[in-house]
Simulated scan of single mutants.
Amino acid sequence: MSSTTTTTTSATTTARAAGSYDPARTTSGGLAGELARLETQAELSFPEELRLLRELGVTGTGGPLIEVGAGSGAVTRRLRAALPELPLIAVDIDGDLLAHADGAGAELVTADAAALPMETGSAGYVLLRYVVQHLSDPLPALAEARRVLRPGGRILVTEVDASCWGLADPWYPELAGVHAKLSASQESAGGDRTVGRRLTRLLAAAGFDDIALRPFATTSDGRPMEDFAPHLGPGRLQPLVASGALTLAEFALAADRWNRFKADPEAWVMLLGFTAAGTAP
């Protein structure tokens, strides 16, 4: 399938301002750094995420699958490889970011998650991966997903919860305040890194049936610790220094502890995520 781009009349600037995700200010290195982070993130956890998608009802037929918040297409490309016959529509509010998904084997659509330019009852699946944590009110986006799904269609929402997202050994208690500032910064921009605990209730409020929640874990067993740098390394904190939310001393502390962690042959980490699913009535 060739990639095409459709631009809707959604107020992209306004909608972006309503969320907490800015690809140019998420990690060090600006947009280029974020593109690299998204690719590394997908490479790290997609096998486990795909296992759950299949367990929760996604097959190679019955599409299309609408991936809302597809961003650079890091997951889109992996979905295409895993499900080669399933029609894919990759949606993102940021057309410039979505342009990097060209060639991913999906139709590219620039649109707000709460105002999708698809006909009612036209989709078999809707996937929101690490999207609802950035929305001040996820219900309009979830209601819109329900609208475009045909009866019996499945919604899949993959998220984290900051309270149990990363388990590390050794653990450095002096970093608790630093990590709390990352969550606080996202919250101040309208996001919620503890949304994982509310996924099933959000799907119920949006009118979905047959709701299920499944965890998935990615660990450093058999993986080099550097693979976890996009999540645990100081690069995620550097934009907080630029904004004044984090001091240089706090950043230096985080960088030092990350270097210690990498150098420890006994260091171990587990990243825990959740996928919630529901059925459109």
Rank of each mutant, 00 (worst) to 15 (best):
Q133D: 15
S122A: 09
A24I: 08
A42P: 08
L248S: 07
I93T: 02
P265L: 13
P239S: 10
G233F: 05
A205E: 12
A24T: 05
A36R: 13
A111L: 02
D256K: 02
S72N: 01
A263R: 11
L35C: 04
T247Y: 04
S185Y: 05
R201S: 15
A123E: 10
G191R: 09
Y130G: 12
A145K: 07
L56Q: 15
A141D: 01
L149I: 13
A206K: 04
G69Q: 03
P234C: 05
G191T: 11
H231E: 14
E107Y: 03
A205T: 05
R25L: 12
A18N: 06
S45P: 03
T5R: 10
P84Y: 09
P173V: 12
P173Y: 05
V157S: 09
E159I: 02
L127W: 14
A90V: 10
E48G: 05
R223E: 02
G166Y: 12
E266R: 14
E226V: 12
M225G: 15
A277N: 10
A74G: 00
R80I: 11
V75Q: 04
A81K: 10
L199Y: 02
G19N: 08
E48Q: 14
G152T: 08
V241T: 10
S136W: 09
H134M: 01
D94I: 01
G33A: 04
L108N: 05
G30Y: 11
R257K: 13
G153C: 08
D92T: 06
G95C: 02
S72M: 03
T219S: 14
A17G: 11
S220A: 03
G207L: 09
T61L: 09
T76N: 00
N259R: 14
V178D: 07
P173D: 01
G105Y: 09
I89K: 00
H179M: 13
A280M: 12
L175A: 04
L50N: 12
A176I: 10
W268E: 06
W258Q: 01
P170C: 13
A24M: 03
A184W: 07
A249H: 04
D137K: 00
D161C: 12
E85C: 10
A249P: 00
